[in-house]
Design a protein around this nucleic acid. Structure first.
Length: 271
DNA sequence: CCCGGAACCTGAAGGC
DNA sequence: TGCCTTCAGGTTCCGG
């Protein structure tokens, strides 16, 4: 599942192949992925456009076009972007044909992924909170976001309007590293816990990028390679099933409708 | 505004 | 072997 580190990896590895290229045509095999008013409108605004640069905001990949517009791509749960011939051909939902003969393939078994052309980045910007890895995101920023919030901290970490880019796997990893129970309410965290969580969020995301993303299921890098971040996961998906610190059995509960793994001994619920 | 839960999808895995 | 159920989780929408 592509979260911030996965999308960042895709952006980094795709850039040398597609920056400066012109999109000659687009094949759509699942038109439901297009979120513009019409598929014809989408085609018209993409075809013939040069890709001038790539950007990432939260889990959104942004392809800047010569027209000044932006091709927005969200891979959701099972999407990948693959260069020509790096795909087995199954589940290809779209193919962007570039002027150097290469294809950029959108592979997405579950058809949750979406794309659209926007006049600028403002629409995406409005959906999202701050980027956790930018220098401007400080411990005080996080404390301000959590203040007076009653929802479970796990649910808050997944709220993209609060904080952009953290998904289910990295949320579990961050809470484990910070030794905070996922059901704790955001506003109940002490200053010390907020500090630990701030460090943990940045560290797990940075490690994810260093390891080129996590390939648990359905995530491929543009060249078809897998990421290695999952090898460092401690609790996500119940990895290892035993806590590496205390040996307790990793538990699974549902928080905000999502499977949540944690160590019941290291991440205690006070009271 | 705040919060929880359903819907959107399909493949994989497990039960019987 | 094969049918059925459950699980996976990012985002949006809806209801309280």
């Amino acid at each position: 599942m592509p979260e911030l580190p996965e999308v960042e990896t895709i952006k980094n590895e795709l850039t040398p192949y597609v920056q400066g290229r012109v999109i000659k045509s687009v094949d759509l095999f699942w038109e439901g992925m297009v979120r513009n008013d019409s598929v014809a409108d989408f085609r018209r605004r993409v075809t013939g456009q040069r890709i001038t640069g790539l950007d990432r905001r939260g889990k959104y990949l942004l392809l800047e076009l010569g027209s000044g517009e932006v091709l927005v791509i969200h891979l959701r749960m099972s999407g990948s972007l693959l260069l020509s011939d790096r795909s087995d051909g199954r589940f290809t939902r779209a193919a962007f044909h570039l002027d150097d003969g290469q294809e950029l393939l959108f592979r997405d078994p579950r058809k949750f992924g979406v794309t659209w052309v926007a006049a600028d980045k403002s629409g995406v910007e409005r959906k999202l909170g701050p980027e956790p890895l930018t220098p401007g995101f400080t411990e005080a920023t996080l404390a301000g976001l959590l203040r007076d919030r009653n929802a479970p901290i796990k649910a808050l970490l997944l709220d993209q309007k609060l904080l952009a880019g953290v998904g289910n796997m990295y949320a579990d990893e961050a809470l484990y590293a910070a030794r905070i129970h996922p059901l704790r309410s955001g506003g109940s965290l002490t200053g010390e816990e907020t500090r630990r969580l701030y460090k943990a969020v940045r560290e797990v995301l940075t490690a994810g990028i260093t390891n080129k993303g996590s390939s648990v299921v359905n995530y491929y890098r543009p060249g078809g390679e897998l990421g290695r971040a999952q090898e460092e996961f401690k609790v996500a998906h119940g990895r290892g099933k035993k806590c590496l610190v205390c040996g307790a059995t990793i538990e699974r509960i549902v928080v905000g409708g999502r499977g949540t793994y944690f160590c019941p001994h290291c991440q205690v619920m006070p009271g």
